[in-house]
C-alpha cells in the first residue's frame, strides 16, 4: 500500500511531501510519544500519530518511515509541512481518530494481501 492509498483509506489527503513516492507500507506504528516510535525496529514504517508537530516528521525521518498520518483533522503548523517537504516524508491529514485508522489500515492491508 502506497501513501496515496493510505490517504484514500483514511479519508484524508497527502498535504506535504511526495505523494507519488512509490514506497509501500512495511509496518504500522501508532504512537504520540517519539521515544516509543524510536524503539521500533521496522523498515518502511507508516507512523500514525495525533501529534501535530515538527518532531513527528523528524522522528519519522530518523527511523526511515515511509509516511506520517496525523489524525482528527488537526491543524498542521506551517513549519511541519515545510520540514516534511524538506526531509521528503509524505504527510497525510485524516479526519479519523487514531484508533479508527489502525483498524482501517489493517483491514485494507488484509484485503490487499488476500486479493
Amino acid at each position: 500500500m502506497n501513501i496515496s492509498k493510505v490517504a484514500e483509506t483514511l479519508e484524508g489527503s497527502v498535504v506535504a511531501g511526495d505523494s507519488a513516492s512509490g514506497r509501500e507500507v512495511g509496518a504500522v506504528v501508532a504512537s504520540d510519544l517519539m521515544s516509543d516510535v524510536l524503539l521500533v525496529d521496522a523498515d518502511e514504517m507508516l507512523l500514525l500519530s495525533s501529534l501535530a508537530s515538527d518532531q513527528v516528521v523528524r522522528t519519522a525521518h530518523v527511523v526511515g518511515a515511509m509516511g506520517v498520518v496525523i489524525h482528527d483533522s488537526k491543524p498542521l503548523p506551517a513549519s511541519m509541512l515545510a520540514v516534511s517537504e524538506q526531509l521528503g516524508i509524505p504527510l497525510v491529514s485524516s479526519p479519523l481518530s487514531k484508533y479508527e485508522s489502525c483498524v482501517r489500515i489493517h483491514q485494507a492491508l488484509e484485503s490487499e494481501k488476500n486479493g
Partner: peptide
C-alpha cells in the same frame, strides 16, 4: 501489544 496491535485486538469496539 503495541498500540496498533491493541487497537486491532479491540477492533470489534466502535471508534469514538
Amino acid at each position: 501489544l503495541s498500540q496498533y496491535a491493541a487497537a486491532l485486538a479491540l477492533s470489534s469496539l466502535p471508534p469514538a
